[in-house]
Nucleic acid binder design. Structure first.
Length: 199
DNA sequence: GTTCTAGAAC
DNA sequence: GTTCTAGAAC
């Protein structure tokens, strides 16, 4: 009897280094923007959608309709657009008077097309699973919308960080966002988070 | 971005 | 033995 072939995982070929095509997972937001099941608000300038894998009880993405691939692509004159996006967030947040939100951008996002995260600070969600998830919203990897806008206004461009610096932040030890607790792993953090939630 | 799962950590 | 994390995915 022939032995079964061991499952080997080959090194990435050069094909995977090419820019992402339509249909690639990194282009997923462009599809979600047009998904009626996800759209919460929409006007001539932006769409607000529910994050497909929410990392908290309330997690929305604000996406401009004009093509803006990322923070680096922003020009000074587009600070007004970012302000508009933030204003629409605050308007939406007023519908949830007892919910604490933060508004910001991931420094090195995985998905193409600029998107502003609006996320409630309970972080109570089954989709929140990994240290990367946690650190992407709870370290300096999460750039406050207000700071991004100010940077664009004052310096004419958004200054973020190198991918290596980003990875370093995502790999930081876990720490609760409300107290000094530094859990050893994600299940312990998730359990601890309930102590800060007053339903 | 998620899924899957090998092997580390417990 | 079970829980948990980390890296490949063609």
């Amino acid at each position: 009897m022939a032995t079964s072939t061991p499952t080997k995982r080959a090194a990435p070929s050069s094909t995977s280094q090419r820019p992402a095509k339509k249909g690639h997972w990194s282009q997923g937001l462009l599809e979600s923007m047009n998904d009626p099941n996800l759209i919460v608000e929409s006007d001539e300038r932006l769409v607000i959608i529910k994050d497909k894998y929410p990392k908290a009880r309330y997690h929305f993405l604000v996406i401009p309709k004009i093509n803006v691939p990322n923070l680096k692509a922003l020009k000074r004159e587009q600070s007004e657009l970012l302000r508009y996006m933030q204003d629409q967030c605050h308007l939406l947040a007023s519908k949830y008077p007892h919910v604490e939100f933060r508004y910001g951008y991931h420094a090195i996002p995985s998905m193409s097309q600029l998107h502003l995260h609006m996320i409630s600070q309970d972080f109570d969600s089954p989709c929140l699973k990994t240290k990367r998830h946690w650190n992407s919203f709870n370290t300096k990897y999460f750039l406050d919308s207000e700071d991004v806008i100010r940077c664009l206004e004052e310096r004419g461009m958004v200054v973020t960080m190198t991918p290596i610096a980003g990875e370093k932040l995502l790999d930081q030890p876990l720490k609760c966002h409300k107290c000094i607790y530094s859990p050893q792993n994600m299940p312990k953090l998730k359990q601890h988070l309930y102590k800060h939630i007053n339903n």
